[in-house]
Write a protein that binds this DNA or RNA. Structure first.
Lengths: 265, 265
DNA sequence: CGCTTACTTGAGAGACTTCAAGAGTTGTGG
DNA sequence: CCACAACTCTTGAAGTCTCTCAAGTAAGCG
């Protein structure tokens, strides 16, 4: 099996050059999307450092002052908020190429805590320097607005399933979303590892750990998935999509929920 | 009772000048926040027109191409998304000074439909011209980023109550949020009109219309609120806050949920 | 090997929904 | 200006989904 570090290097050579945007396998999913060579070079200059984050380590905590955005280089993260009663709501799971910390721009302090789900690495992007660069590289600014807007859509999609989907529908949507995102990164859309615990999934989908466990069992019993610990295989994509879209039967001709999955992140 | 038009003019004189940002009573809640006279003048120039939207009229529909953001001048709006099964999720209620359409920047088409809850007016802000202005007015750009970030926080707060609050808690949070926002606009935080139907509230909070109706009855029976049709009075702020924060008793010393209300929008 | 952590499964309870009926309000046309 | 229709809201009763509580299994780690 490939290690995380190998995954991060996919498409690029190993070495010092690897830490440049132009050499990164995920540049087309990330901030430098659409930039030319020279613009990418300027972006490289402001990226402070590649920072390692160990499994279960906090990249940042709620209410910490905001200085930088972070782009995931490899590994996985969860972002979560805790309310007054101590209940945790996970606001998302982030993987390579995705941007962290945009919730903090408005208030100057992080609204979410960010924790690594496995040994991971991020690119630290000092926001003040990024702002300076916006003035010089309009392409970058426009793409940044797209990313922030997509983040809004992503959260709205979460509202959609939290607000009016049943447990099965939420869970199917979640699995298909992961599948879509792995596909976009060149990995198998049918077989992947769940990097988060059952509890994390529950805290994301507004369900309990027991419900998640039962859903996994039921989906497996129905032949839709195979599960071995955190190793997951989607065996019946069409049925899962029918479930996610709220169609009663997994019949042929069911419209796939592309848009939702793409933006749910 | 004041009409909407009178409300919109609050703090300004009536006439042609009224349609300028500098004359608008909500400039400090809206896009021009923090701009000086001359910068505000440049913003004025790009604002296409003040557009009237009648009650129940669509300001824009889902999947329509995106050209402009809209700032609410007066009145109220709801934004909603409909999923494949035809269920509606209301993603928010907007009032004077709030910005609409940021979800559409990423994809170039509106992810939400926007409907006026009463006769209202918006300022249309062509996004391409706004982008041009960003290059000339850095203050505007920085504030725009703050607004988008706050929108992300707002949606995350919605995730928070949809994901792990009980019906009473959600509803109390909702009422306090309205209260806070009216207060910020100079209106009474204790007494206001619900501009949306019970069904709309339900579609926002992930509950049914019957549940909302029962909640209103129960809150009234508990002496926390008074309701007459859509006219609402908050009689016991501390108890509502205790409920919203998840405290068991409405005892003294309960920490108010300021941050949540402020950003929930 | 024993401890801790992560997960699974069952049974009962509770919260909210669904279904149903009725009351109140608003709007419209004669 | 009234009568009727349409819509919104309220309330009750039954049902269902998910949670809570509880126990047990499996895996990881010292």
């Amino acid at each position: 099996m490939m290690t995380n570090i190998q995954l991060a290097a996919s498409g690029g050579t190993v070495g010092a050059a690897q830490s440049k945007c132009g050499m990164c396998g995920f540049k087309n999913l990330c901030l430098p999307q659409g930039l030319n060579e020279s613009e990418m070079g300027r972006l490289d200059k402001i990226i402070g450092r590649r920072r390692r984050v160990e499994r279960d380590e906090n990249l940042c905590r709620m209410e910490q002052p905001f200085h930088s955005l972070y782009a995931v280089r490899f590994g996985h993260f969860k972002t979560s908020r805790v309310n007054h009663s101590g209940q945790q709501q996970i606001t998302g799971f982030q993987m390579a190429g995705e941007l962290l910390g945009m919730d903090a721009i408005g208030s100057g302090q992080h609204a979410c805590g960010v924790v690594a789900l496995e040994d991971s690495e991020v690119c630290e992007i000092p926001f003040s320097r990024l702002q300076e660069l916006f003035a010089e590289v309009p392409t970058l600014l426009r793409h940044f607005h797209r990313i922030m807007s997509q983040e809004i859509m992503r959260e709205q999609n979460a509202m959609l399933f939290l607000g009016n989907m049943r447990a099965e529908q939420r869970f199917a949507t979640f699995l298909l979303n992961l599948s879509t995102r792995y596909a976009a990164r060149g990995y198998s859309p049918h077989s992947f590892q769940l990097r988060m615990s059952r509890e994390d999934i529950g805290d994301y989908l507004g369900l309990t750990i027991e419900s998640i466990s039962r859903l996994l069992s039921r989906f497996r019993a129905s032949g839709w998935i195979a599960v071995d610990k955190r190793e997951l295989t989607l065996l019946d994509h069409p049925s899962l999509e029918a479930l996610a879209t709220g169609m009663p039967a997994p019949a042929a001709g069911a419209r796939p929920a592309i848009m939702m999955q793409a933006a749910m992140a």
